[in-house]
Design a protein around this nucleic acid. Structure first.
Lengths: 360, 360
DNA sequence: AATATATATGGGAACGCTCCCAGAATTGTT
DNA sequence: AACAATTCTGGGAGCGTTCCCATATATATT
C-alpha cells in the first residue's frame, strides 16, 4: 500500500482547523454574572442554587450552546461516563454472526440513554497480546467494562486480574472468577425446550450439534437436551452429540454430515448459524427439512426467519441481553454497589417450518 | 420494570471500590530520579532524552505497569485520541443487516491499530432529536467523527453544520455538503457489472430492485444498470425498475412480486438482503432460481454464500471500507490536512448458483 | 429582635498531564 | 582554549472541570 496521500485521487479544498475556542464554565459564569461554582452546580443538577440564577445560567448555556469539557470533567471527577466493551479474542468472523452486533446495539442504546458513551475494543490475531490490553485499552478513560466473550485465554485472564474497575460479563464469567457480575440467558432451559419440542412433534432419534465444549453456553444447552431426553425415558446416545460445531455454518454442515449416517430424525443445533449449515447438509443428502429431519436452532437471529425453510429456534432476547448488561454496569457505577450481581434472562421457543412436520 | 436491585436474584460478595490510587507521571519521575518533563518525553517518544534516562524511565514504567491518565492527557493536549462513530438515524433494524457490523469492525480494528479508541453513538426513534447530538455526543472527548449513514435528516444536518471537528463519511456525503471527506465503493461500476453479468448468461428482460430513491448508493447502482443495458442496445423499461426495496428482506419480496407479473428472466437487487427476499417471492410463485429467473444481489454479505441457492453478488470490501475510513480520518487528524479527501474502493463480481444458468 | 438553621455563593486547590522556556551539560568548530 | 551549536533537563503555567471550605444571605425559631 502506498502512502495515504497518493491513495486519494483528488483533493478538495476546505480548511477544518483553527476553529474558535470553546467556551468554558468560567465564560458562562462571567456571562451570567455568577461564579464558576454556581454554573457547575447548575450543570450537574445540584441543589443550593437560587431559582433565579439557575434559570439565568441555563438560558446562557442554551444561547451559547455550551458543552462542558468532558476531559476536564473526567480528570476532576475521576469518572469519564464512558464504558468499554471488550471482546478478548479474535473477531475475524465474529461479525458474520448477528449475535454480537445486536448485543452491541443493545449495550450502546441503553448506555447512551443512561448518559454513558460506549467505546469498543476489538482484538485480532495480530494485536492479541498483553500490550494490546495495556496500551490501547487504557483504563483511565473508562469507568467500567463489559466483557463479551465465550472463551478466555491466559493472556486475557492475567490482564483482567489486574483490572481494577467494575466489569460485567455477557454470558457466563470464566470459571476462575466465580464472584463477578454477569448477565446471561437461560441456556439450559432453552436446550430443554428445543429438545422437548422435537419430541413433541414426534422425533425419536434426536441429534445435537454443540458449539464448543467446555464453553458454558454450549454445555448448558447440552444439559437441557439431556434432561429432556431423560425425562422422556430416552437413553442418551453419545454418538448423537457432535461436539465441535464451532458456532459456524460450515461447522454445522460438517457435524450434520456425521449425524446423517447415524440416522437421526431431529436435530438441535446450539446456534442458528450451525442449524443453517445442518440444513444445507441435509439438503445435499437429498433429504427434506422437516419431513425427513426436523431442525431447530438457538439464538433467534433474523436470518432464521427467512431461510429456506424458515428455521425454528430458541430465541434469545439479544437486544435485552445487551441492554441489561449495560444497565447492570451503570447501576454498579452509579451506586457504588459492593457486590457482584447477576441476572438470567428467559428464552422462548419459536416454531417455524423447519419443525412443522407433525404439528397441526 | 422494577428497580434494579430487585431484578437481581442473588447477591454475591465482592467489593470493587476503594482501589489503590494510580501512579502519576510525577511518581514515575521521582522513582526514576528525573523530572516529570523527561518522563513525558519518554512516553510520547520525543527526542531530547539521553539514552540512559530513557531506558531507566522505560524500565520503571514497565515495572509499575504505569498507564498515563487519558483524561489529563486529553485536557492538556486538547486531543483525546478517540474517534466517534455516529449513525444519525434510527438503528432498530440496522443490525439485522451485516453491513454495518462488518463496517464497524473494520473501523475499530484500524483505529485501534493506529492508537485510537472508537466510541459509538446510536440513535433511536425515541432519542432522535437535537439534544441527543448536543448532550450525549459531546464534542470534547472525540477528535473526529465517522458518519455512517445513507440518509440524513434536517435535525442531523443542522447539528452537523455546527460540528467543528474533522469528519469522514462512509458512502456519499449529503448533497448539501459537497466538500467533505468520504470513502465509498464504486456503486455505479457494481451496478454495471451485475447487469452485464445477467446479460452474459443470457437474460433478456432484467428487472432491478432499488434500495431507496434519492440515496446515492442506490441511485448509482441504478445508473450502472441503465448503462449496461444501453450499451447492449436494450431499451430501458421503467416498469422493470422497482424503486422501494428499502434494503429489507420484505421490501425485496414485495418488489419481486411486482416484477413477477412483468415476466422478467433476471433481477438485479441493490442489496443481498433484498435479493434474498426476491428469491423467496420467486420460490413462492413456483418458479426456480436460476432456471426461470436469475438473481444477483449487491454487498457480498456472508449469508449470500449459504442461502438456497447461494446468491451471486457484487461484493463490496466492507471491512476495507471501514478500515480506509478510519485511516482517512486518523490521517486528517494526525497531519492537519486542510482539505477534504475522498477514496473510491473497487467492487467485485461473485458468481454463485443464483446466476449459474447458462454459464458452463 | 436576637439567634439558630438552612440555603446560596464564590474562590482556592486539585486532578495529571503537555507545552514552553530558561538554563545546564555536552559536543563540535575555530 | 574559547566560543557556538546542539542536546538535555526541570520547573512553571495552563488545560477546564469538581470539590471543599469559608462566608453571605434568606428563612425559621425563640
Amino acid at each position: 500500500m502506498g502512502t495515504l496521500p497518493e491513495l486519494f485521487p483528488e483533493i478538495l479544498s476546505k480548511g477544518r482547523r483553527n476553529v474558535p475556542k470553546d467556551l468554558s464554565l468560567e465564560d458562562i459564569a462571567r456571562l451570567s454574572g455568577v461564579s464558576r461554582s454556581t454554573v457547575s452546580r447548575v450543570i450537574n443538577d445540584q441543589p443550593y442554587v437560587s431559582q433565579k440564577n439557575r434559570e439565568k445560567v441555563l438560558r446562557i448555556i442554551r444561547e451559547h450552546n455550551f458543552q462542558p469539557n468532558l476531559a476536564a470533567r473526567a480528570l476532576a471527577s475521576q469518572r469519564s461516563r464512558v464504558i468499554g466493551v471488550l471482546i478478548p479474542h479474535d473477531v475475524s468472523d465474529l461479525f458474520a454472526d448477528p449475535f454480537f452486533p445486536i448485543l452491541l446495539k443493545g449495550i450502546t442504546l441503553a448506555s447512551n440513554e443512561l448518559g454513558y458513551g460506549v467505546t469498543l475494543w476489538l482484538s485480532t490475531v495480530r494485536n492479541h497480546h498483553r500490550s494490546f490490553y495495556d496500551s490501547v485499552f487504557n483504563e483511565s478513560l473508562i469507568d467500567g467494562l463489559i466483557i463479551a466473550s465465550a472463551t478466555f485465554d491466559e493472556t486475557f485472564l492475567k490482564w483482567l486480574s489486574n483490572f481494577r474497575k467494575p466489569s460485567v460479563f455477557v454470558g457466563a464469567a470464566p470459571s476462575s472468577m466465580p464472584n463477578v457480575s454477569f448477565v446471561d440467558v437461560d441456556n439450559r432451559n432453552g436446550g430443554f425446550m428445543a429438545t422437548r419440542h422435537l419430541l413433541d412433534i414426534g422425533c425419536h432419534r434426536i441429534g445435537m450439534i454443540e458449539g464448543r465444549q467446555k464453553q458454558s453456553s454450549s454445555d448448558q444447552r447440552r444439559e437441557g437436551y439431556i434432561e429432556a431426553l431423560e425425562k422422556a425415558d430416552i437413553p442418551i446416545d453419545p454418538e448423537l452429540i457432535i461436539p465441535h460445531g464451532n458456532y459456524t455454518e460450515s461447522g454445522g454442515y460438517e457435524a450434520m454430515k456425521r449425524l446423517l449416517v447415524r440416522d437421526v430424525d431431529g436435530v438441535f443445533a446450539a446456534s442458528d448459524i450451525m442449524a443453517l449449515g445442518a440444513m444445507r447438509a441435509i439438503r445435499e443428502a437429498g433429504l427434506r427439512v422437516p419431513q425427513d429431519i426436523a431442525v431447530i436452532g438457538f439464538d433467534g437471529v433474523p436470518y432464521g426467519a427467512i431461510s429456506n425453510p424458515p428455521l425454528s429456534t430458541i430465541s434469545q432476547p439479544i437486544d435485552l441481553l445487551g441492554e441489561e448488561t449495560a444497565r447492570t454496569l451503570v447501576y454498579v457505577l452509579d451506586n457504588d454497589v459492593p457486590h457482584a450481581l447477576y441476572k438470567i434472562l428467559p428464552v422462548a421457543l419459536v416454531v417455524r417450518e423447519s419443525t412443522s412436520r407433525m404439528v397441526d
